[in-house]
Nucleic acid binder design. Structure first.
Lengths: 222, 222
DNA sequence: ATATGCATGTAATGGGTTACATGATTGT
DNA sequence: ACAATCATGTAACCCATTACATGCATAT
């Protein structure tokens, strides 16, 4: 899966390169490798405008459909880290009838590492924690009716998400400015529609199942 | 978000009291609330058989399609915790030409909390970190060809997952013993097929886009 | 009056990973 | 000989959350 074979080939006298370095290479050769959250923050600043931590948090919430939303304290911590690395700068903005704020802007170095990440970082699989499916997997110890209820609830929740996304999609799909977000919104709609179908299909399968076989495998056979 | 307003009101000379206890209620009233990972481990033991940490880790890997796989060290730590809580017990198994092992079994108390979790815990939304979609979202700073490549790579990876799941599904869908896992496998297939479609569709949209509008919004306008 | 939004942070804790460590056995 | 599988664990670290903390402005 050719991640970047020629990039590697370009490396000649591999004095250190510490390739696949465990972590902590004080020599500072290979770019510190940040967690994805840092790149999410950097990405939100990559549009070029100045944002406060507070605004950033709200923007980050827009990613919630495909990326989790970090806590605000995490955002602030991230900003301080990025600043120490020289990837963002801030300036204080005095306000009259509002608390003062600190707005951040991405630096050239920041734009640089972000671009590098965008173009060079390997394709990772999704990391998901699907607690509903987890429960379904262990269905043998659940009350069958409750399990159906859980699935129906989930389908319901998902429907709301679809509506939200549909709304967002309608808003932004006109303007070319939001081309990529619009593509993402379409992805999201397809994603959650599939989730809805899957949940409903699972309920069907539970219903189809002949009675008398429902759960409690080893309640008395143990 | 009424945390506990009258608790506060009751405090007069607030010497300590550590009011509205952040967590850790030693009085043991409300069941400790474990992280989902604990329930995943408990769930894998809920079939009634004895398992070593090593075996457990391998079983946990089967959940990887819809739940992430914890590191082995995490499994061991989890088992020790659950044992301290009385939800599992272990016994040492001497082996001749293999390292000795420690096999764990769920207790009645453990089965109990697990059932309670299965039936009572609220329906949580999926938590996903989709780094590929994250990159797509910030497509304006990516090299358009590389972005397409990333999406194609992802679609390819997903195809392999589908094949894996198809294989598993074929194996288990015969036996009624694996009813729930089979339902989950079907869910998974639908899920990853949707992912594949979404990735392919996104490539299409990138292709459809008129030239000259690709990325680099503020490369020179800054 | 009370809640909500704006705005920024610290402290404590927890969940989880990676690397380090050990050591025998089996397959190539 | 070398790698992989079996088997269990510790140490260090870091990412992230929750709760604590403050304070003004506006809307209800």
């Amino acid at each position: 899966m050719g991640t970047s074979s020629f990039t590697c080939a370009a490396i000649r006298d591999g004095s250190m390169i510490s390739f696949n370095s465990p972590r902590r290479n004080e020599s500072g050769s290979d770019r510190e490798r940040l967690p994805n959250t840092s790149y999410a923050v950097l990405g939100m600043l990559s549009f070029g405008d100045e944002l406060s931590g507070y605004q950033l948090k709200k923007r980050a919430d827009n990613l919630r459909f495909f990326y989790w939303s970090p806590a605000h304290s995490q955002i602030y911590a991230e900003l301080r880290r990025l600043e120490k690395l020289g990837y963002v700068t801030h300036r204080e903005v005095r306000q009259v009838r509002r608390p003062d704020k600190r707005v951040y802007r991405i630096t050239d170095a920041g734009q640089d590492v972000f671009e590098t990440w965008m173009n060079e970082s390997p394709v990772e699989p999704v990391s998901l924690k699907h607690s509903v499916v987890l429960r379904l997997f262990f269905g043998h110890v659940a009350d069958p009716d409750r399990l159906r209820e859980v699935l129906a609830d989930y389908a319901e929740q998902v429907s709301e998400v679809i509506e939200d996304l549909q709304g967002i999609s309608d808003e932004i799909s006109e303007s070319d400015q939001f081309f990529y977000p619009a593509v993402v919104a379409e992805w999201g709609i397809g994603y959650y529609e599939a989730e809805r179908r899957a949940a409903l299909r699972a309920i069907e399968r539970l219903d189809e199942r002949p009675e008398g076989l429902t759960g409690e495998d080893d309640a008395d056979t143990a």
